[in-house]
Each structure stands twice: as C-alpha cells, then as structure tokens.
C-alpha cells in the first residue's frame, strides 16, 4: 500500500507540475508583485528607511520571499478547487489508488512551483545588489525554513481549496497572509512602531522567520529566534493539516 502511495503520488505530482509548466504565467504572476515590491522599497522608500544596515536589498530579501510564497500558495487552493469542480477529484476517488496521493500531489507541486519562484526572485535580487556571503550550510538552512513555511501555508491553502464555493473564495484567504510581512520586521525595524503595533509585529510568525533567514544570510548568530520560527511553522503545519484532513473527510463523505 505504501509503495502504491508513493508511485500514485509521483504520478499526481507529474500531472500537477505539468499544470504549472503549461501555464508559466502563474510563475510570472506570483513573482512579479514581490519583484515590484523589491524595486519599490529599494529605489523609492528605501532611501528614507533607517535600518542600520548598509545594504537595504539584503534587509528586504527575506520578507519579499515570504510574500512570494504567501501569494504562490493561492494556486494550490485554485487547482484543488478546479479539480473538485470538474469532477476529476471524484474520478480519482472512485479509482483503486492511494487516496492520500490526491492531496499530496497538489502539496508537493506547491513546493516545486514556490521553489522556482524563490529562485527567480533571488536572481532578480542579484541584479539590483543583493549579496550574501553565506555558505552552503546556511543556504541549506534557509531553504529548509522556506520549505517548511511553504509546506505549512500550502496545507492552509488546501482548506479553502476543499471548502470554498466560488473560485474567488478559494483565493481570498491569502490576502491577510500576504499582508502579514508588512506588519513585521520585513521592511523596517520593529523598534520604530508604536506600542500595540510593535507588540503584534514582534509576536507574529513572520518576524521570527524573517529575522532567522536574515541572520543566516548575513552570517550572524541566529540565536533562539530560529526555534521560535520553526515552532510557528510546525504549529501552523500541524493545525492546518488537521483541519484540511477534516475538510477532506467531510468532502468524501
């Protein structure tokens, strides 16, 4: 059964990745907004923002990557919603396959497509002055955090994908997530914010993730912040997965 689950999941992954490569505009749509923010903050607002670093692009990069992932996962909700609408979801469920492969195919595809987006943005960053002296291990750690973050948010996206009644509803959930980095340490130091806002900014998941990635890229010690970041990602992952499985069981009766 487990070997079936693996081979079925890889068939489903192949199908869904083909959806991504057939509509490369989705990668462009996902990356264009973060790149626009990157340019906006680098060349318009950046001059007036005091972060205490000499390279503001380096400062921006982690937050920009999180925004890209937060908008990228919308497509998982969209693709899942379309599968349900078109009846192919039911076709798969009436077939002798591992049922888990139906959702995992979409989830793994999200990791692949968001990975591509992240690389595209990093390359664009290089053009406008992003530099990092981090070694392979630090980069591996950054990839690990971003992967975990993507996995957690993708399971969040599965919930509206399964339960939404309109395609707009399936996509709307991501707006608040895309907005979170703006009220965090992603663009400005939290010390400049008024009390309650600062309290929120310092205690929401994005700040710890941004600070950890920034420290890794700048070869600074990550301190305890990385544990906070990992705890947030794992916590979101566990809760989202449980809710998604509940929605799934309801869906298949």
């Amino acid at each position: 059964m487990t070997t079936h689950a693996l081979s079925d999941t890889s068939v489903m992954l192949g199908r869904s990745v083909r959806h991504v490569t057939r509509s490369l505009d989705t990668i462009i749509t996902v990356t264009i907004m973060p790149i626009a923010f990157l340019l906006l903050f680098r060349y318009v607002f950046g001059g007036a923002i005091e972060t205490g670093t000499d390279n503001y692009v380096n400062y921006l990069m982690p937050g920009i990557l999180l925004i890209a992932i937060a908008s990228g996962i919308t497509y998982t909700a969209y693709r899942l919603f379309m599968d349900l609408q078109r009846g192919i979801f039911e076709r798969f469920h009436s077939m002798p396959i591992a049922r888990s492969s139906v959702l995992w195919g979409h989830v793994l595809t999200s990791l692949v497509s968001n990975g591509i987006s992240v690389v595209v943005i990093l390359l664009s960053g290089l053009v406008i002055g992003f530099r990092s002296s981090a070694g392979p291990l630090a980069w591996l750690a950054v990839a690990g955090i971003l992967g975990l973050f993507t996995l957690a948010l993708t399971w969040v996206a599965v919930i509206p994908g399964l339960t939404a009644s309109t395609v707009d509803g399936a996509a709307a959930f991501s707006y608040p997530i895309v907005f979170l980095p703006f009220v965090s340490s992603a663009f400005v130091p939290t010390e400049t914010m008024p009390g309650p806002v600062r309290a929120f900014a310092e205690n929401q998941p994005v700040t710890s993730i941004v600070n950890s990635i920034r420290a890794l890229l700048e070869q600074q010690p990550v301190g305890t912040e990385i544990w906070t970041a990992l705890a947030w990602c794992t916590g979101i992952l566990v809760v989202a997965y449980a809710l998604a499985m509940r929605a799934y069981r309801r869906k298949i009766g």
Partner: peptide, 24 residues
C-alpha cells in the same frame, strides 16, 4: 465511473489524460 460532467483534465492533452489514468 464516468460522471455527469466529463471529468477530464483540461490542461493536459487527450493522450496525457489517458496515460495518467493508465499509470494510476
């Protein structure tokens, strides 16, 4: 099962749809 609305993958080609089911 062939449902009420043709449950085919619109983004794949006809051949790819059949191969997909064949693999599964």
């Amino acid at each position: 099962l062939t449902g009420q609305f043709a449950a085919v993958d619109e983004i794949l080609t006809g051949r790819e749809n059949l191969i997909l089911i064949g693999r599964l």
